[in-house]
Design a protein around this nucleic acid. Structure first.
Lengths: 150, 150
DNA sequence: GTATGTGCAAACTTTTTGCACTTCG
DNA sequence: CGAAGTGCAAAAAGTTTGCACATAC
């Protein structure tokens, strides 16, 4: 993966561009299946065996705090991470496998923002709305990719 | 709290009606703020000091498996529990405090079911859809109660 | 009576922490 | 050079497990 973009992402937030941070970012982008901290570590170790577990957690915290990565999680699972913070999207949770897929649809997003524009929640200011779509993949392997069938 | 209803809930699922299960169910209903396992324990201990931690976790698992209780969770938090499984509702997450409120609106639910009736997700069958509404409470204490301002 | 549930304590998993050392800018 | 980041290893936090004992039905 080209790291120029990742370096820029870090620099733009005033974060130091370290080898560890690049590796973690790159891992989440590559393992686009909403990886766990452990999967991120396993992905990095072959090429960077000395990276510390604690470092990965600290880097993940920093990335989340700076909005470069999002936390995602199942009801019954470890924390997982999503590097796609650019495109507003929702998540699809399979009850059988532990896959978390992406779901994107602009029509839906308009529907939601229209709805909440006219239905404010008293005493609460909304930052973002995310659908958790629960169910089952019916045919084999989940694609885990954004779909916008508009 | 009247336990007759709780006893019936358990019996209806073919579960044995034990003191421990009643206490846990009662606690989640009473602590309507989506309590953690720990808060449930603290609520029970004064009147039932000998209940074991492991038991509470086992009871919670059983209740979730049988659909009497739902898991709810913040991005950065312990597991929490919700005893309102009757009324389809969504959750409101405050970024400042760790309150999780309820949001209920039938118009919204119709909007969503209409949308997904005409926009199936290929290879996926939907069981339920839940909004995670992120933002901040702007005025003091969150009410944490269902609102349906229709 | 018997299947089911509970208590207990030990163990496991995931994540956090503190501090000396290193690195980026 | 100095502030920010990392490695390490220990420990916290939350949850699970196994097995003898107890209880609901």
């Amino acid at each position: 993966m080209e790291t120029t973009y990742l370096r820029e992402q870090l620099a733009a937030k005033g974060l130091k561009v370290t080898h560890q941070r690049l590796c973690v970012l790159e891992a989440i982008h590559t393992l686009h299946n909403h990886p766990t901290a452990d999967q991120i570590l396993e992905h990095i170790r072959p090429t960077f065996p000395t990276i510390a577990t604690g470092t990965v957690y600290k880097v993940l915290d920093t990335l989340v705090e700076n909005g470069l990565v999002m936390r995602v999680q199942n009801d019954k699972d470890v924390m997982r991470y999503d590097a796609d913070v650019e495109h507003q999207h929702h998540h699809v949770y399979c009850k059988d496998c532990d896959a978390i897929g992406d779901y994107k649809n602009e029509e839906l997003d308009h529907l939601l923002s229209d709805f909440f524009a006219t239905h404010q929640i008293p005493g609460f200011s909304i930052d973002s709305i995310r659908l958790h779509i629960h169910g089952r993949y019916t045919e084999g392997i989940p694609s885990n990719h954004i779909q916008d069938p508009s």
